[in-house]
C-alpha cells in the first residue's frame, strides 16, 4: 500500500505517519501543517479542519458523508459488490491478504462508499473515496459501485457527487483497474444524457487514474484547500524533468490559478455550496 506514499512529497508522508500514530485513539494530536497541538474532539467538531491554521485534515469516507448529507433517509448503494482476485496477484503478499488487512484496518469492504440521500434536503447520490483503504485505489469494485451510484441518480432523477481521494489505479487488479477509468467516465455520459448534474470534489490527494478519468469532467469541479491533485506524482515529475517543482505545484490553489478547477471550497461551506449548485443545475427554486 505504500506505493501511494511514494507519490507524495516527504512533507505529506511525515504528516500521514504522525496522524496515524496520534489521531485515531489519542486525545491530543498535532496538526501536520502548523504543528499546533490540538484536542482531538475540537478537531472533530471543526470538521477535521485545524482551528489554528485551517489545514484540511484527511477525512474517512463515512465521516465525510456524515458531514455532508442529511442524517435521515440515507441508503447505501453497491455495498454488495466485493473485491475479487481475478489475476491471482501475489507480490510479497497475496492480493486477498492485502484486501483483508485493509478491510480490518478501515472497516470498509473497498475504497468507495456510495450513499443515496439528501444534502440540505436536496436529493443526491454521493460517492466518497476511502483513502485509507489501499490508498483509495481504483479497482473493479470501485468502478462498479460508482456506476451503480450513477444509475441510482438516474433512477431518482437527482445529481451525482463524487468526493475523491486516491493514489490512482489499483495495480493488483492489472488492466481491470485501468478499464475502470473508462467505465466510470463512460457512466457520466449516461448521467449527462439524462440532464443530471455531476459534481466532483477533489480532496487531498487525487492522483493518477482517478485524476485522469472522471475527476475533471464534472459539470462543476471543486477542490478542497491545499489538496494535492495531479496526473503524475511530484516525485515522478521531478525525476523526469530533473528540476525543482514550482512552489505550490499541483495544489488546489495552483489548479485554480491554471484554470483547471472551478473553485476551492472550505469544508465548512461545502454542504451549502453543493446543495445550492445542485438546485441551480436542476432548475429548482431557491431553498426555503
Amino acid at each position: 500500500m505504500n506505493w501511494v506514499n511514494k507519490l507524495l512529497p516527504p512533507k505529506i508522508k511525515r504528516a500521514d505517519g504522525q496522524r496515524k500514530s496520534t489521531l485515531p485513539e489519542g486525545l491530543w494530536c498535532k496538526c501536520p501543517n502548523c504543528e499546533a497541538v490540538l484536542y482531538t474532539a475540537d478537531l472533530e467538531a471543526n470538521l477535521q479542519v485545524c482551528p489554528k491554521c485551517e489545514h484540511h485534515h484527511r477525512v474517512k469516507a463515512r465521516a465525510r458523508l456524515d458531514m455532508l448529507m442529511d442524517a435521515h433517509g440515507r441508503a447505501e448503494i453497491g455495498a454488495e459488490v466485493r473485491p475479487k482476485d481475478a489475476l491471482k496477484f501475489v507480490d510479497s503478499r497475496p492480493y486477498p491478504v492485502r484486501v483483508e488487512e485493509a478491510q480490518k484496518q478501515t472497516g470498509e469492504t473497498d475504497s468507495l462508499v456510495v450513499m443515496q440521500g439528501t444534502i440540505e434536503a436536496e436529493p443526491a447520490v454521493v460517492a466518497c473515496f476511502e483513502f485509507e483503504f489501499m490508498g483509495g485505489s481504483m479497482g473493479s469494485v470501485l468502478g462498479e459501485r460508482f456506476v451503480r451510484g450513477v444509475r441510482a441518480a438516474i433512477e431518482n432523477k437527482c445529481g451525482f457527487v463524487c468526493i475523491t481521494a486516491s493514489g490512482g489505479a489499483r495495480m493488483q487488479e492489472g488492466l481491470f483497474s485501468l478499464m475502470q477509468m473508462a467505465k466510470t467516465t463512460a457512466s457520466i455520459s449516461e448521467l449527462a444524457r439524462h440532464g443530471l448534474p455531476f459534481i466532483t470534489v477533489l480532496t487531498d490527494p487525487t492522483m493518477g487514474g482517478v485524476s485522469a478519468s472522471f475527476a475533471f469532467v464534472g459539470d462543476v469541479v471543486i477542490a478542497e484547500p491545499n489538496a494535492l491533485v495531479g496526473f503524475a506524482g511530484p516525485r515522478v515529475i521531478e525525476q523526469t524533468v530533473r528540476e525543482k517543482l514550482p512552489e505550490g505545484f499541483q495544489r488546489a490553489e495552483f489548479l485554480l490559478d491554471k484554470g483547471a478547477i472551478d473553485m476551492i471550497v472550505h469544508r465548512k461551506t461545502l454542504r451549502d455550496e453543493l446543495s445550492s449548485l445542485l438546485r441551480i443545475l436542476r432548475k429548482e427554486p431557491v431553498s426555503s
Binding site: 469532467v217 495531479g230 496526473f231 503524475a232 524533468v241 528540476e243 514550482p246 491554471k258 483547471a260
Partner: peptide, 12 residues
Amino acid sequence: PGIGAEERGQSE
C-alpha cells in the same frame, strides 16, 4: 509526466 503537462491539464 512534466511540469507543463500538469499545468495545462494532463488529467483533464
